[in-house]
């Protein structure tokens, strides 16, 4: 990755050497559709995920939430048969356009996965700094950066004494926060989370929700969750996805979380958030 890339129209919101200045970026998806081979899994999604906010994507399994999330940082195209339509803009810049390389897009839009996946061959510190190594970024203040990322992910106090230990020795919840810290080290504008708490116990879940709350000021967060209470607790905006049988998933309703939960316009949203189906 080359910081002097002339094709980049906007510099990184906060380069790894400076303090965190970013308030996150705004992601705008318009008319996004997706296919796996011949089967259409997502149709006509329009959604704006604003800076400084947590946007929750809710909906039953198989409605295209995760596919949509993976379209937002170009992980969708890793599946050989996958294709898509529509556009996704990060602060007005098309992430599928020619002005951004795929590695730049993924660096600015980080991702935390459902299953914690720290690199087993690396120590805790190396895991946190992995983003620097993997993107070929030199950072003079590597140590401070590791501490900062771990602190932002709420893990510093638990691991500060054993940064050289292998990451596999941490508990599931700690591993997931380590993955969050790892994503934060490259200073993304947006952080995508794909059911980050589904493999964790309630205490770890709460800890990660607190982390999300603290990060909201610095990074735009988009989170997929199956847990209604979690969506209510952590998000300011909410989008309800639904797929009818043998049909692609669509956004039924989106808006402020309070509206979606308390006074939804669509009867299906109301049924879903009150646990009457799905």
């Amino acid at each position: 990755m080359n910081n002097a890339d002339p094709t980049r129209t906007k510099p990184l919101a906060s380069p790894p050497d400076g303090p965190v200045r970013s308030r996150g970026g705004t992601l705008t998806a318009s008319q996004v559709s997706a296919w796996f081979g011949a089967s259409k899994v997502l149709e006509g999604v329009d959604l704006e995920m604003g800076a400084g906010r947590v946007t929750a994507l809710i909906g039953p399994s198989g409605c295209g939430k995760s596919t949509f999330l993976r379209i937002l940082n170009r992980m969708h195209e890793l599946v050989p048969s996958a294709s898509l339509a529509g556009s996704v803009l990060l602060d007005g810049q098309d992430i599928y356009g020619t002005s951004l390389r795929v590695t730049q897009v993924r660096r600015r839009i980080g991702m935390v996965f459902q299953k914690p996946n720290p690199f087993p061959a690396m120590s805790i510190a190396d895991n946190v700094a992995a983003g620097l190594k993997l993107t070929g970024t030199r950072a003079a203040n590597r140590t401070e950066l590791i501490e900062e990322s771990l602190s932002r992910a709420g893990l510093w106090n638990e691991v500060k004494g054993r940064l050289r230990d292998p990451a596999g020795g941490l508990s599931g919840g700690q591993q997931q926060r380590l993955c969050i810290a790892r994503s934060l080290t490259v200073r993304p504008d947006v952080l995508l989370m794909d059911e980050p708490c589904s493999a964790l116990d309630p205490t770890s879940t709460r800890r990660i929700e607190e982390t999300i709350g603290e990060l909201r000021e610095q990074v735009t967060i988009v989170i997929v969750t199956h847990n209604m209470q979690q969506a209510q607790r952590v998000s300011q905006r909410c989008a309800f996805f639904l797929a009818a049988e043998n049909e692609p998933g669509r956004v039924v309703e989106s808006g402020p979380t309070s509206t979606i939960f308390d006074s939804p316009r669509d009867a299906r949203t109301s049924d879903y958030v009150h646990g009457r189906f799905g």
């Binding site: 996946n117 992995a130 993997l134």
Partner: peptide, 24 residues
């Protein structure tokens, strides 16, 4: 999942293989 994690950090394919897949 490890390959995806590396790619999601913005790593090029060759870096992912060299720094994540082979050491693992």
């Amino acid at each position: 999942g490890l390959r995806e994690a590396s790619l999601a950090l913005g790593a090029p394919h060759w870096r992912t293989v060299l720094s994540v897949v082979l050491p693992t």
